[in-house]
Amino acid sequence: MALEGNFADMPLIDLMHVFHHGRKTGRLLIANAPFKAMLWFFDGAIINAGVVTQNAHERVACGEQAVFDMLAWDDAQFVFLPPNPQETVSVQIQHSIDWLIIEGLRRRDQPQRLAGTTKLQPTSRLRLVPMLRQASDITLTIEDWRILSQLVQELSVAELVEATGWNYDQTLKVLHRLIALNLVEVCSEIVVSQRSLSPVLMAPNHEHMVENRVRGLVQAIKARLRRTSASA
């Protein structure tokens, strides 16, 4: 078993980013009838790609063009496999993953796809990615910098529209691009409150007793886990 799914659940853009940051080496097999495709990753970079017909195995596209074709697929199945030791793969793609994504989607003029699974609403709050990654061969535009310079603090999409003076669509277009480049992210939205202890532990209804009981119990369980681990 390996990583597998559908582009509807995890778009190719997300897969490319994850493999790049995880410096993965392996093969991404993709099936989108009547085609099938393969992307070869080495140390997080895409080094080769090809699209063929499913039955006759006739070549449809290879190299960068194959990546651009795959970026247009919405409903393909994928599986990630370790490298095949019997296979020698030549390096046909020299550009970075960021360049391939931006260039592929620019050709199709589909900026909303750039953000992968991220769905932006006027109330969505955005911030700079805490750990910015190393420089790549992507050049930021003046529009990109204008948004980035506003995000010294978390702002909503609506606040950014106001701050830049652009219209909503133009702001979204730049934001999608910055999200795809992993420079901007949407802040977490699930709110979970954890304020009380289990009724089992609250039973004595006395704060010090509760604290001592919990702390003693936690230490005892951890000691028990360590003992088992040591004896294993």
Binding site: Q194, S196, L197, L201, E207, V210, V214, R215, V218, I221
Partner: peptide, 13 residues
Amino acid sequence: LLDRIDVLAQDSS
């Protein structure tokens, strides 16, 4: 998980 339970107990106290 136990560490989080522990921290919560200290906070409550």
